[in-house]
Amino acid sequence: MRITVDAERCVGSGMCVLTVGEVFDQCQDDGKVIVLRPEPPAETQDAVREAVDLCPAAAIALSADRRP
């Protein structure tokens, strides 16, 4: 699983941080989403999917891992 975010869309609700704080944070300066773990550990992936669903601005996207 690979996470990409669109900071332009982000409205800073903090739902991703609330849902899975080990993967997402908010920038101190502008409050927008920061991805701490773009390839989140397996045990967080259900919560990451929930964060994607909860994001009010649809600013988080998931893609499959690119394998060499």
């Binding site: 800073g12 903090g14 941080v17 609330l18 704080g21 944070d25 920038c27 101190q28 502008d30």
Partner: peptide
């Protein structure tokens, strides 16, 4: 208006 406010109400700050 919302943009300058969101850093004031982050999960961490709250």
């Amino acid at each position: 208006y919302r943009k300058p406010l969101i850093s004031k109400f982050t999960v961490r700050r709250m």
